[in-house]
């Protein structure tokens, strides 16, 4: 079977709530059409091409990753939104972030553009 024809035959089927793949052997999977992410979530071939799919459970597990504990370096300070109302701005996290460019300053200076009635 080709993955293309199987996709076009089932365009409107409901997507299962949980992704459970049971395979006795490899014959059910066309080689090359399926793969896994580093976390083990299945990539699959859809009409739009290969896509990176994660279910809710997997995403929630990633929430506990240590990297999520520190705010992004360039997180703007918006009282009541990214920081408590009336709280002083959080100190800039010195954690190594994906962007280490010096011109990537925290956007705190733009605050005045934003009118907040606190």
């Amino acid at each position: 079977m080709s993955s293309g024809s199987s996709c076009s035959q089932t365009p409107s089927r409901a997507i299962p709530a949980t992704r459970r793949v049971v395979l006795g052997d490899g014959v059910h999977l066309p080689p090359g059409d399926y793969s896994t992410t580093p976390g083990g979530t299945l990539f699959s071939t859809t009409p739009g091409g290969t896509r990176i799919i994660y279910d809710r459970k997997f995403l929630m597990e990633c929430r506990n990753s240590p990297v999520t504990k520190t705010p992004p370096r360039d997180l703007p300070t918006i009282p009541g939104v990214t920081s408590p109302v009336g709280d002083e701005p959080p100190t800039e996290a010195s954690q190594d972030h994906l962007s280490s460019s010096p011109e990537d300053k925290p956007a705190g200076g733009e605050e005045s553009q934003f009118e907040m009635d606190i």
Binding site: C62, R63, S65, V67, P71, P72, L75, L98
Partner: peptide, 9 residues
């Protein structure tokens, strides 16, 4: 992970 970094803050 970057998503959670924003979302958690």
């Amino acid at each position: 992970e970057q998503f959670w970094r924003f979302y958690s803050h």
